[in-house]
Amino acid sequence: MIRILVIFLLMVTNAKPPKATEKVIARQGKVSFFSYTSVEDIKAENNQVLSVIDIDKKEIAVRMLMNAFIFEKALMREHFNESYLESDIYPKAIFEGEIVDFDPTIDGEQTRIVKGVFTMHGKSKALEIKTKIVKQDNNYMVSGVFETFVKDYDINIPPLLAGNIAKSISVEFRFEYQPYED
């Protein structure tokens, strides 16, 4: 009986509270996109993109407001929000995925594939993105470039303007993460 009591006490004293999942947050991530055609080049950037990485689960989530993209020309912004992306109906774009083979113990740089689903304009598309991850003093920097197709997101472009917008859009991203407690 005493032996059982001792074992029980040892278990209780050695029991630790479950470790809180470690997360990092980027409140001012940057996402830019570029459309190159012979008619015109269109560039826009969003500098207030939110992203959270759950380090233990190797999961990444990204959210952005579509109306927070800054364009070179006001007319481009107007077309983007009102005609193409319908930002009042679909105000946010979301990416949720997993960083494959991510090793948070590596200081410095590692290149990994991020697999996930990107939802924009009410349409979801599976993506695999080659991503550079740099860890320094428990802060992370994540960046990369990928191509995506306008047709995948059910975006209607009038035939008259079809020549102005590339079929494939180049997307660039850069996030600087800091420790975060949920």
Binding site: R27, L50, R63, M64, L65, N67, A68, K92
Partner: peptide, 8 residues
């Protein structure tokens, strides 16, 4: 512009 975690 709106709100994600923070107001923008």
């Amino acid at each position: 512009k709106g709100m994600l975690k923070d107001v923008i």
